[in-house]
């Protein structure tokens, strides 16, 4: 690439939940009054990879997120990690169905591409909350870009991107001609923690906004609910080292020794 790589990363603002995910009384949303927000683990790796690739090849890493204006918080986190530019796709809503999400992102990417088309578009394989496994594919398909998901290795060179994917029975390798897209998974890299200069730079950086009001798609959430929690408490086998004989009795019963 003569003037470096133009990398675009799409991230989603998701609740950072602990051991149990609280819901609003109407069951339509996660109750986030007492929760923080974060970028999903797969997408954090996508940001790290974009920053790494631009460090290696030169160019620019742009991070993009669709949602309400609050997604600026996650965009600034990605800037603090080293992304160069942030784009907020203001959909006015914190949860769109996957077709609508893809339409909003697709519209924004097309607008950005009119100025300079991306060489590589990275997505998380699936979002950490809704987990629809399809927004990246829909966006890439709309833009005419090849995309493969489940990616745990990315190398760019000679006008192609080499992708490695782990599946149940082994590894698969793909070589896509650029421009291309990929859905990445945690384990691709170890995302950095933003340092202080990064955080200060991110705080002052401008966030470019594109407004999108996509039509809803055909999948509608009726309500969310907690899975039945059958936790009745464990059988207590004792405290400390003294519990060892009881533990080994159980291992014996379970047939694992």
């Amino acid at each position: 690439m003569p003037d470096g790589l133009e990398v675009l990363v799409c991230v989603k603002r998701v609740p950072a939940s602990g051991a149990r995910v609280p819901l609003t009384p109407d069951g339509l949303h996660v109750d986030t009054r007492h929760l923080g927000f974060t970028i999903g683990p797969h997408e954090e790796c996508a940001v790290e990879e974009a920053v790494r690739l631009v460090g290696e090849h030169g160019g620019r890493a742009t991070v993009l997120a669709a949602g309400p204006p609050e997604v600026a918080e996650q965009l600034r986190y990605a800037l603090a990690m080293g992304a160069d530019r942030a784009v907020l796709v203001d959909t006015g809503s914190d949860e769109l169905d996957p077709q609508a999400t893809a339409a909003a992102i697709g519209q924004a990417v097309a607008e950005l591409a009119a100025e300079k088309p991306p060489d590589l578009v990275l997505f998380g394989d699936s979002s950490a909350d809704a987990g629809h496994f399809q927004v990246g594919v829909r966006v890439a398909c709309g833009l005419g870009l090849p995309i493969v998901g489940g990616i745990k290795g990315v190398e760019v060179g000679d006008g192609v991107v080499r992708l490695r994917r782990e599946v149940a029975d082994g590894d698969e390798r793909y070589v896509l001609p650029l421009p291309a897209a990929a859905g990445v998974r945690e384990g691709l890299n170890l995302p950095r923690y933003p340092n202080l200069p990064g955080r200060l730079r991110a705080k002052k950086a401008a966030v470019h906004t594109i407004v999108a009001r996509p039509e809803p798609g055909g999948l509608r959430t009726v309500r969310l609910r907690q899975p039945a929690d059958e936790a009745t408490g464990p059988v207590w086998l004792g405290r400390g080292a003294a519990a060892a004989p009881a533990v080994v009795d159980v291992l014996d019963e379970l047939g694992v020794v």
Partner: peptide, 24 residues
């Protein structure tokens, strides 16, 4: 995870696990 487990031992991993290994 303790509350959702089938069996539980309260204690430090570095005391309990070596004791289980020794018992085995």
């Amino acid at each position: 995870l303790v509350q959702r487990a089938t069996y539980a031992v309260v204690g430090d991993v570095h005391e309990v696990v070596p004791a289980i290994v020794a018992e085995l």
